[in-house]
Amino acid sequence: MPTFETLPHFTTDLQHLTPAQRRRFHHVVLDSFVPDLRTGLFRPGLRVKGLRVAPGVYELTWAQNGRATWQYGQEKTRGSRHIVWRRIGTHAILTGP
């Protein structure tokens, strides 16, 4: 199981999501994102792609207008990926830091 941390902006963004949006995000992360991290190949429906304006930062589509940005962090548990969640919300989060 990968480890993760959240940046302060992500935590603030997460609080602004509706309960249904939070459930959807958690569902997608646990049922799709985490298994795909293990294989190293992300399924097309997740639409994981790198951001051109921020090398090393990726965008994950978790709903039609739901996005989260993340990056790989320093491994905390040997052999497990570490994810740093940066932002979450609508497509509008891609215009901020």
Rank of each mutant, 00 (worst) to 15 (best):
L7N: 08
V48A: 08
F33L: 06
A63N: 13
P2E: 12
A54V: 04
A20T: 10
F33D: 02
G66V: 12
L51W: 03
L51D: 07
Q64T: 12
L51E: 13
A68C: 14
G40P: 05
P44G: 12
K76I: 00
V28E: 03
R23Y: 15
V84W: 08
G73M: 08
E75R: 11
A63V: 04
W62K: 09
T95G: 09
F10E: 02
H9I: 12
A92Q: 03
F25L: 07
V28M: 06
G79W: 00
Q21M: 10
V53Y: 07
R24T: 05
V57F: 00
G40M: 06
R47D: 15
L94H: 01
A63F: 06
V34M: 02
Q71I: 00
L51A: 09
I83T: 14
D36F: 04
T69N: 01
T3C: 11
I83P: 12
F33S: 05
T11V: 09
V48T: 13
L94K: 00
H82I: 11
V57C: 01
T61V: 14
P44S: 14
W70C: 05
V34S: 00
L46E: 11
W85V: 13
G40L: 08
L37D: 05
P97T: 02
T39F: 02
P2T: 11
